[in-house]
């Protein structure tokens, strides 16, 4: 009797997924790898280019600028959404009708497709017909996201906060719900301040889900494409051209397939690396708690 595998039947059930993933992910990825190391002039003729494209991309100022914008954007997003999400979760009703209502309302933004979110905000903020744009103009605020880089950034950040803070809040809320009442009672009896209760009871207990929330928000915001593409199209100028928008411009706009492919591989590796770091932190944290 085999000591390795308990029930081989399970593998047959996984097979269809494996085949699908082969077609949808692995084969396209290999194509990208192919483009990254070769040069082509069409007709399926390829010339070996080694690490040439990679060198070019690593030294490209255009890419550095896009990466800078991307890091800044993701940084701001995390700095706003994580504390805000925790704050919202702490102040949500714990049970009853209002709790259910809050949960439903908060999940709504998460259910809207990305391009629809983009379109909503694109129209909402337009100075000529948008509710927000017109209102700002009426109040005498000089606001125009199509021409002012700062305004474009503010618009994108507010949009992302509106779209995704719920995710952080809902995850934290679930974490908070699992804290036994006795902890709060004990804290009251110890005359703990609200901040200390958060710092020593709530934060340690939600740190697990919080890490997952941060990871998800990092990946998503680092790869953001649809919403800024719909709202600003990367403009004005290149002000909101984030990594993925730049990548698409390079690949589809200019047909620089080689550099774009090399670029996407590096992009992919960065995300993989960060995710791995998060994963390691979470696993060692769990092991410490099980001890």
């Amino acid at each position: 009797m085999s000591l390795k595998v308990q029930n081989n039947k399970a593998w047959f059930l996984v097979l269809p997924v494996l085949v699908l993933v082969m077609f949808s992910a692995v084969i396209p990825l290999m194509t990208v790898v192919n483009y990254a190391f070769n040069d082509t002039f069409g007709n399926n003729q390829f010339f070996w280019n080694g690490l040439g494209w990679f060198e070019e991309m690593v030294q490209s100022e255009r890419l550095h600028a896009a990466l800078g914008r991307q890091v800044l954007f993701t940084g701001i997003i995390l700095l706003v959404e994580v504390p805000l999400g925790i704050f919202v979760a702490l102040n949500m009703p714990k049970k009853g009708f209002w709790a259910s209502l809050c949960l439903v309302l908060m999940s709504l933004p998460l259910l809207i497709p990305f391009n629809v979110v983009g379109t909503i905000w694109q129209i909402f903020c337009r100075v000529d017909i948008g509710l927000l744009g017109r209102a700002a103009a009426a109040l005498g605020i000089d606001y125009n996201y199509t021409s002012d880089a700062f305004d474009a950034w503010v618009t994108l950040i507010i949009m992302d906060v509106w779209h995704w803070t719920s995710l952080v809040a809902l995850l934290c809320y679930a974490g908070l719900q699992s804290i036994p009442q006795a902890y709060y009672h004990a804290a009251r009896i110890d005359q703990s301040t609200r901040w200390n209760t958060f710092r020593y009871i709530e934060l340690p207990k939600i740190s697990g889900v919080l890490l997952i929330a941060i990871l998800l928000r990092f990946i998503d915001s680092f790869m953001i494409y649809t919403e800024p593409f719909v709202v600003t199209g990367g403009g004005p100028g290149n002000a909101t051209t984030f990594l993925s928008i730049d990548l698409v411009k390079m690949a589809i706009g200019q047909f620089d397939l080689g550099p774009a492919a090399a670029f996407s591989l590096m992009y992919f590796l960065v995300i993989l690396l960060v995710s791995w770091v998060f994963y390691t932190v979470m696993v060692t944290r769990d092991a410490e708690q099980d001890r």
Binding site: P180, A182, A186, I189, D190, P204
Partner: peptide
């Protein structure tokens, strides 16, 4: 003072900090 059914301690603090907590507050 109250002692609960399941032990309530502040996990991230040391034993000393736990004992000092109500006094500090």
């Amino acid at each position: 003072a109250q002692v609960f059914q399941f032990p309530v301690v502040y996990d991230t603090m040391t034993v000393r900090e736990n004992l000092a907590f109500p006094l500090k507050n």
